[in-house]
């Protein structure tokens, strides 16, 4: 029983961070119809910047929002400099579909190399701001530490704020309109270009939060080749796709499901199998319900 509860806790904890990553993927997909394979690279860069900020300010809770703002700026810059040029250059032809994929992959490699140049290929260490010892219930120590709890609450807060922005503000309405139909949105007087950049910026902020929280939630160590970022890259994508790629609640749901399944595999079978199980889950969802958990059939027209 205790094992089962731990599985739930670990699953939801991991899933909440994948959720941020998946949200970033969904935001970018909705605003520009690009799957940003560099998202994990951008999150990694933000994590390194967060590390510097923690060093400078000595306080994780100041560093986190600052890193998110910088992550948003960087992401917006990428959209303006790279993605706009790309979309302008290649609207037709046999390679139009693959060009954004390749470009974001190139960006991923570029960011990794730059991080290597600036910080070297050694690990950096970020101290978790709170205790990572699990709460005690009588004799049992459960897999929920103050740190985990805070990560969970932070993610929940961000999701609520994003949900509010999307559903209740005029910015959210513009974002949804531009995603739904760029031409009509443009005719209705929405500056679609600017809205796209904002979509990328929010995604950059979410990715930055995912990177930093993943780091302090895990071992606290990061390197350009660390496993944690292959995790973020793959699982963020998988969560977004099984959630439907179009909807934010879908992304969160997909991420939590993914987190729970992987936690179950990790605890009951073997930790080395998580990647292949994640792949199998992705394949299964794509074959059985290609539109994802939440999403309409028409939504999957790429």
């Amino acid at each position: 029983m205790a094992q089962f509860i731990n599985m739930l806790l670990i699953g939801i904890g991991a899933g909440s961070i994948y959720a941020l990553m998946a949200i970033a993927m969904v935001l970018v997909w909705r605003s520009t119809r690009v799957i940003n394979f560099a998202q994990a690279g951008m999150a990694l860069l933000s994590t390194y910047i967060g590390f510097e900020l923690v060093q400078k300010t000595g306080n994780f809770w100041i560093a986190l929002p600052l890193a998110m703002i910088l992550g948003a700026l960087f992401s917006a810059l990428v959209e303006i400099l790279l993605i706009r040029t790309l979309i302008k250059h290649s609207t037709s032809g046999p390679v139009a579909g693959i060009v954004p994929i390749i470009a974001t992959l190139g960006l991923l490699g570029f960011i990794r190399a730059m991080i290597g140049f600036i910080w070297g290929n050694q690990d950096i260490q970020i101290q978790p701001p709170l205790s990572k010892v699990g709460f005690k219930f009588g004799e049992e120590t459960i897999s929920l530490s103050p740190m985990n709890l805070l990560v969970l609450l932070t993610v929940l807060g961000m999701v609520l704020v994003l949900g509010f922005i999307f559903q209740k503000t005029s910015l959210g309405l513009s974002l949804r309109a531009s995603a739904y139909s760029p031409e009509i949105a443009q005719l209705a007087g929405i500056r679609v270009g600017a809205i796209r950049t904002i979509g990328w910026a929010i995604a950059g902020a979410a990715g930055a939060a995912a990177g930093l929280l993943q780091t302090v939630n895990g071992t606290g160590a990061v390197s350009p080749d660390s496993l944690e970022f292959s995790l973020l890259l793959t699982f963020g994508f998988i969560a977004a796709v099984i959630g439907g790629l179009e909807s934010l609640p879908g992304a969160v749901l997909g991420a939590v499901v993914l987190g729970l399944v992987l936690a179950a595999v990790q605890i009951y079978i073997s930790g080395t199998l998580v990647f292949i199980v994640a792949f199998a889950l992705l394949l299964l969802v794509l074959l059985v319900r290609p539109q994802g958990f939440i999403g309409t059939k028409a939504g999957r027209r790429a």
Partner: peptide
């Protein structure tokens, strides 16, 4: 497009 790219990517990692 991107679905296939991501799926094959997941395979390469897995």
């Amino acid at each position: 497009g991107p679905y296939l790219a991501g799926t094959t990517l997941a395979l390469a990692i897995g």
